[in-house]
């Protein structure tokens, strides 16, 4: 089956060699000319986040190592640092060379443009 949307590869993560990998939660949006994958990676910054594409699989990775306050005793913990990773299969309709990523406030956004010939076009109708 050939997918036409950007789909997360559920079976591929977490990777078998590393059990302690967080799967970041994502939103995926589509417009006429691009897809956008938005992933929560709290604690990660532009130096610790990576997005790579190989064989039409987009992989997003990030690391979070929260700074513990000095001279304090832990009272309770509901989240921890660690590694984020998730894979997505890209449709043939996207231009892999045009993919752009940015991270802000612990959120990674990856913009995946569609190829020119598949972009929806508005045709001017003249009377």
């Amino acid at each position: 089956m050939s997918e036409t949307k950007v789909m997360p590869n559920e079976a591929s993560v977490p990777s078998p060699e590393s059990e302690a990998v967080f799967v970041p939660r994502v939103d995926i949006r589509e417009t006429a000319d691009h897809f956008e994958v938005v992933a929560d990676m709290p604690g990660a910054d532009d130096k610790s986040v990576e997005a790579t594409v190989q064989n039409r699989v987009l992989t997003i990775e990030g690391w979070s190592c929260p700074e513990k306050p000095e001279g304090h005793e832990p009272l309770g913990q509901e989240f921890g640092g660690g590694r984020y990773r998730r894979d997505f299969t890209l449709p043939d309709s996207v231009e892999v060379n045009g993919i752009r990523a940015r991270v802000r406030n612990g959120v990674l956004s990856v913009r995946i443009p569609k190829k020119e010939d598949v972009k929806a076009r508005r045709i001017q109708v003249t009377g």
Binding site: E10, V13, P14, V21, F22, V23, P24, R25, V38, D40, M41, P42, G43, P66, K68, P69, G71, H72, E73, P74, L75, G76, Q77, E78, F79, G80, N105, G106, V107
Partner: peptide, 29 residues
């Protein structure tokens, strides 16, 4: 996926010292 199924949001970490308490809240975006 990958996270605990806990309903409280945002997730918090807390530490105490003689001076007081430090609280981290995970609030991406």
């Amino acid at each position: 996926p990958g996270r605990r199924s806990r309903t409280s949001y945002p997730p918090l970490n807390a530490w105490t010292s003689e001076e007081g308490l430090t609280l981290d809240a995970e609030l991406p975006g």
